[in-house]
C-alpha cells in the first residue's frame, strides 16, 4: 500500500513540476501552456490538453490563454484539488482593459462556466472579439465581466452570480513576434473591481 501511495505522490509531483515548467504567465492576468497543439508536446501536456481542450490549434494557428486575474493559478489549484480552469469567482465584477490592436488576424475573449461550456444569459452574449468590441478612437476598450450590467457599460460580458467561471483569450493567426513574446506582450489586463 505504501508503495502505491508513494507512486501516486511521486507521479503527482512530476505532473506539477511538468506543468509549472511549461506554464507561461503574462503579468496582465493570463496564462498559457507551452506545447499546446504541438506534435512535439511532452506526453503529460498532450494528455492534459486532450482532456481540457481537445483539438486545440498549434501556436502558429492560435494562442489560447486562460485568465487568472490574481486568483489562485493553475498550480495552486492543482495542489488544492480545485477545478483547474474555473479560477474566477461568480458574483464578482472584473474589468478587462486593453487595446483592440493585437498583432494577429483576429482575437476573442470568451466566458465559460465551471463545466467549460458557454454561460447562458438573456443577452446571448458569450464573447467579445476584435470585430465586435466597442472601442474608442485610439482602440482602447473596457469589458465589464459581471452578473449584472454595470451602469454605463458598453461592453458587458455576463458572468455567473454564484459559481466559478473562466475567461479565454484566443488570438488567431498571431504574428510570430507575438507568440515568441507572449509572456511580456501588453495583453488586455484583467482587474478585479470587487465582489457584488
Amino acid at each position: 500500500m505504501l508503495g502505491i501511495a508513494s507512486g501516486v505522490t511521486v507521479f503527482g509531483a512530476i505532473l506539477v513540476f511538468q506543468l509549472s515548467s511549461n506554464l507561461i504567465n503574462n503579468p496582465n492576468g493570463w496564462a498559457t501552456v507551452r506545447g499546446v497543439g504541438s506534435v512535439n508536446a511532452d506526453p503529460l501536456t498532450k494528455a492534459i490538453i486532450a482532456k481540457v481542450g481537445i483539438f486545440a490549434n498549434s501556436k502558429e494557428q492560435a494562442i489560447y490563454l486562460t485568465g487568472f486575474a490574481g486568483e489562485p493559478g493553475i498550480i495552486k489549484r492543482l495542489l488544492s484539488k480545485e477545478k483547474l480552469t474555473s479560477s474566477l469567482k461568480g458574483g464578482t465584477h472584473y474589468q478587462i482593459i486593453g487595446n483592440v490592436h493585437i498583432p494577429s488576424n483576429w482575437w476573442s475573449i470568451t466566458l465559460y462556466n465551471e463545466q467549460d461550456f458557454l454561460h447562458g444569459n438573456p443577452e446571448n452574449r458569450f464573447s467579445f472579439s476584435s470585430f465586435s468590441i466597442n472601442a474608442n478612437e485610439k482602440g482602447k476598450f473596457i469589458i465589464d465581466v459581471s452578473p449584472t450590467r454595470p451602469p454605463g457599460s458598453i461592453n458587458w460580458l455576463p458572468s455567473p452570480d454564484k459559481n466559478g467561471f473562466s475567461l479565454k483569450l484566443r488570438i488567431y493567426e498571431p504574428l510570430p513576434d507575438l507568440y515568441n513574446n507572449i509572456s511580456t506582450y501588453e495583453l488586455p489586463k484583467i482587474l478585479k473591481v470587487g465582489a457584488l
Binding site: L2, G3, S6, V8, L44, A47
Partner: peptide
C-alpha cells in the same frame, strides 16, 4: 523490495495511462 516494486508498477501504470489518454479521448469523441 515489495515497496519499490509496487512504487515502480504504480508509476508505470500511471504513465501508461498518460500515453494512452489522447488516443482514448479522441476515439471517444
Amino acid at each position: 523490495g515489495l515497496f519499490f516494486f509496487s512504487l515502480t508498477l504504480t508509476l508505470a501504470l500511471l504513465w501508461a495511462g498518460v500515453l494512452a489518454a489522447p488516443g482514448y479521448l479522441v476515439n471517444k469523441r
